[in-house]
Simulated assay, not measured.
Amino acid sequence: MTAARRLDGRRAIVTGAARGIGRAIAERFAAEGASVAVLDLDADAARATAHEIGARAFPVDLADHDAARAAVAGAAEALGGLDVLVNNAGVLRLGPLLEITADEWDLVQRVNARSMLSTTQAAAPVMIAAGAGRIVNLASMAAKSGGANEAAYAASKAAVVALTRATALELGPHGITANALCPGYILTDMGAATRTDDDVARWSARSPLGRLGDPADVAGAALFLASDDGAYLTGQALNVTGGMIMH
């Protein structure tokens, strides 16, 4: 007998899914039986990922409110409905607090936080009509710990946690859960240009497990929240940090 897959028959949208954590989540969802739509700014990479995992690609600039809503609506229509929305897309900008420009600040907030409002506003009516749904928002360890040279990024991720709680309260009566994941140091392309071997060793030492995270670690947590096993969790900000943050 073949064991049932945990997302058989589910329809999922994953933003920022062309690479990194988003790709790992989309790939895991597809392997678990979900029909997946890949949303990403990089059109070529989105199409390549979608082709490789058997998904559909929807290139979109999620910093554009109207475009983000239209892409989610189009993806939900193409999938024949929507059961899971994973808001993963994000950007990282590092720099001293006193040197952040207004434009840099606004870009980080638009992509990391406001885009989740845009996509949720488009996804929620579909889920409300169905009487159920799962929303998983990618925040960060930075939402809880902050960090020097991370002011814009940390603020945007703290906003994600707050948005998630408001979403859980407002959409819970419709059978929709909303949770955030707070990954720690995950080895992806984001930040690779400024990451050194010494950085990796120093960060690894902060974890009781003695290692940094892999995108698959985050994908497993997202799968749990999207599946029936996570049905009674909502409004939570779950750490995927290897014990670096425990609150």
Score class of each variant (00 low, 15 high):
residue 10 R to K: 15
residue 12 A to L: 01
residue 17 A to S: 14
residue 22 G to M: 02
residue 22 G to C: 07
residue 27 E to W: 01
residue 27 E to Q: 13
residue 28 R to I: 03
residue 31 A to C: 09
residue 37 A to N: 12
residue 41 L to T: 03
residue 55 A to C: 04
residue 57 A to M: 02
residue 57 A to P: 12
residue 67 A to R: 05
residue 68 A to S: 12
residue 68 A to W: 01
residue 72 V to F: 03
residue 84 V to E: 01
residue 88 N to E: 03
residue 93 R to F: 08
residue 93 R to C: 05
residue 99 E to G: 11
residue 99 E to N: 11
residue 105 W to S: 02
residue 106 D to P: 02
residue 109 Q to N: 05
residue 110 R to T: 00
residue 112 N to M: 00
residue 113 A to G: 01
residue 113 A to R: 02
residue 113 A to V: 09
residue 114 R to Q: 04
residue 116 M to N: 02
residue 116 M to K: 06
residue 121 Q to W: 11
residue 126 V to K: 10
residue 126 V to T: 14
residue 129 A to P: 11
residue 131 G to N: 08
residue 134 R to V: 12
residue 134 R to A: 15
residue 137 N to R: 05
residue 138 L to S: 04
residue 147 G to T: 14
residue 150 E to T: 14
residue 160 V to N: 00
residue 162 A to C: 03
residue 163 L to P: 02
residue 173 P to T: 08
residue 174 H to L: 08
residue 175 G to E: 04
residue 176 I to R: 04
residue 176 I to L: 05
residue 178 A to D: 05
residue 178 A to P: 01
residue 181 L to G: 04
residue 182 C to F: 06
residue 189 D to N: 08
residue 198 D to Y: 09
residue 198 D to E: 15
residue 200 V to S: 06
residue 204 S to V: 13
residue 204 S to W: 10
residue 205 A to T: 12
residue 214 D to T: 14
residue 219 A to Q: 06
residue 220 G to H: 04
residue 223 L to A: 04
residue 229 D to P: 06
residue 232 Y to E: 00
residue 234 T to G: 04
residue 234 T to C: 08
residue 234 T to A: 09
residue 237 A to W: 04
residue 243 G to I: 10
residue 246 M to H: 10
